[in-house]
Design a protein around this nucleic acid. Structure first.
Length: 384
DNA sequence: TGTCCACGTCT
DNA sequence: AAGACGTGGAC
């Protein structure tokens, strides 16, 4: 371990007059740390090889708003099923939605397939290597374009994800709350990413994100292990752990509804493919009522019109039952949902279903590829 | 239990 | 350009 001054003394000095940030020193310290501590991830090149652009793109889309741990098994599944972008481009829509089930933000899967088809058809299966062209592809925005250009093509780009926001906010002690601090974070990040002599842009981008994911973590940052703690102004001011500040968010609204478990005389359960856009777009799910707003603080289960939504068209049999213990809760991005189960046994002959609905043998439900909100309920029903 | 992460992209 | 869009894990 290198000898260090007592932190209380050095911190006090730095806090009075923060030293000018030296991007070159930051860069070499961070890259040195990365060489020793880079996470080993299935989409990363090893031993000085260049990463496969298809792997980089696929992983980066999966990593949008999603943790590495959740992504790893899905990445393996996709690469096994579709080893090259041309294979993915040739896949059926429902195969891809099925493979994506559980990962969330299902618009990503729809755009992933669209993007694969554009790359296969109009780019001869070769990923474009510039930010501007990448950004023109479906599902690729500022972050993913910069990440792919830097990591797969070693282009000098400023790659800003949530990790980088945090590292930069702390290093420069940016106290303005997000999202107002966005322009300042970008400007400061640029001084690190696009410094003269940026010879390993892909590694540098990944190093910044690894640092944010493993050392400069949201709570209780491990400054003792940080390769760039010495120049960190947030640490010097003793506020690193509080950064980045954020504007307070409004409390999530609540919604409630019924989920229908409709069984026919063969023991099959009714499922449906949801509309192609919007919430859980293109995914398979159980039929439900509409989900109605439920003001925060209200204790009583809200009135839900059983005749609204799907239920009227279905003419649930008289022996339907509602069990209050068949209840699941699920948090979406912008609301909390509580669903109660309604059980019904119907005769196929007298029960009309829509074009989007189909019967599934109970034993095949797990193979269906359901979004988590519905998997929670099917697990309740089969006791697992 | 509830809060945060989680700016990422599209509309 | 503000709101829509999932999930699971840490604490």
């Amino acid at each position: 371990m290198p000898r260090t001054m007592p932190s209380s003394i050095s911190n006090r000095k730095v806090a009075k007059s923060a030293p000018p940030v030296k991007p070159a020193a930051f860069r070499s310290a961070l890259l040195g740390w990365y060489d020793a501590h880079a996470r080993v991830l299935p989409w990363r090149a090893r031993g000085g090889k260049t990463a496969d652009p298809y792997h980089v793109w696929l992983s980066e889309v999966m990593l949008q708003q999603t943790t590495v741990q959740a992504v790893i098994p899905y990445f393996g599944k996709f690469v096994d099923k579709w080893p090259r972008v041309q294979n993915l481009a040739a896949a059926q829509d429902d195969e891809v939605m099925h493979a994506w089930a559980g990962l969330g933000y299902y618009a990503r899967a729809r755009n992933l397939l669209k993007c694969a088809r554009v790359v296969a058809e109009t780019h001869s299966g070769v990923f474009p290597d510039t930010v501007d062209t990448l950004k023109s592809l479906p599902g690729i925005g500022d972050y993913t374009a910069a990440a792919v250009a830097a990591i797969a093509f070693n282009r000098v780009e400023t790659v800003i994800d949530g990790n980088v926001d945090r590292v930069v906010s702390r290093w420069f002690a940016i106290e303005t709350p997000l999202p107002d601090s966005k322009p300042e974070i970008r400007a400061q990040a640029k001084t690190l990413f696009e410094h003269k002599g940026s010879d390993r842009p892909g590694d540098f981008a990944q190093a910044m994100m690894d640092l944010g994911a493993t050392i400069c973590i949201p709570q209780n940052p491990r400054c003792d292990l940080c390769p760039v703690s010495k120049g960190c102004q947030g640490r010097a001011k003793g506020i690193a752990a509080e950064l980045p500040r954020r504007k307070p968010k409004a409390a999530q609204p609540r919604r409630a509804g019924y989920v229908y478990w409709i069984e026919n005389e063969r023991g099959e359960i009714l499922f449906e493919t949801r509309p192609g856009r919007g919430l859980l777009g293109g995914m398979v799910g159980l039929p439900t009522s509409d989900w109605v707003g439920w003001p925060a603080g209200q204790r009583k289960w809200p009135e839900i019109d059983h005749k609204g939504g799907h239920i009227s068209a279905m003419k649930i049999a008289d022996d339907n039952s509602m069990k209050s213990d068949l209840k699941i809760r699920h948090t979406f991005t912008h609301f909390d949902l509580e669903l109660r189960g309604v059980l019904a046994k119907v005769k196929t002959r007298s029960f009309k279903i829509t074009d989007d609905q189909f019967w599934v043998p109970a034993t095949e439900i797990t193979a269906l590829g359901l979004p988590t909100v519905f998997r929670k309920f099917t697990r309740l029903m089969d006791g697992t």
